[in-house]
């Protein structure tokens, strides 16, 4: 009886196919590369905006 109840209350986990896992990995990599490029962009623009001013600041 208890087992039967458990069976009914069980929530099925989604089943991912090989294709879906492959697509998910592809999406994750795309997000990773985009984030890396985003960080690099902020770094480069910061350097450009600072220019020579780092050396010129009052000590």
């Amino acid at each position: 009886m208890q087992d039967d109840d458990n069976e009914r209350h069980k929530i099925e986990a989604p089943v991912w196919t090989e294709e879906q896992i492959r697509k998910r990995r592809q999406r994750n990599l795309a997000i990773a590369w985009t984030l890396a490029a985003f960080i690099l962009l902020f770094f480069v623009v910061t350097i450009v905006k600072l220019g020579g001013n780092v050396a010129n600041r009052p000590m």
């Binding site: 009914r8 099925e12 989604p14 991912w16 697509k23 998910r24 592809q26 999406r27």
Partner: peptide, 18 residues
């Protein structure tokens, strides 16, 4: 409410590639 009659849960989305 917990009947097994509900459709098999396929993930909403997750089908698209980059």
């Amino acid at each position: 409410a917990y009947s097994n009659d509900r459709p098999k849960a396929l993930p909403q989305g997750g089908e698209g590639g980059a």
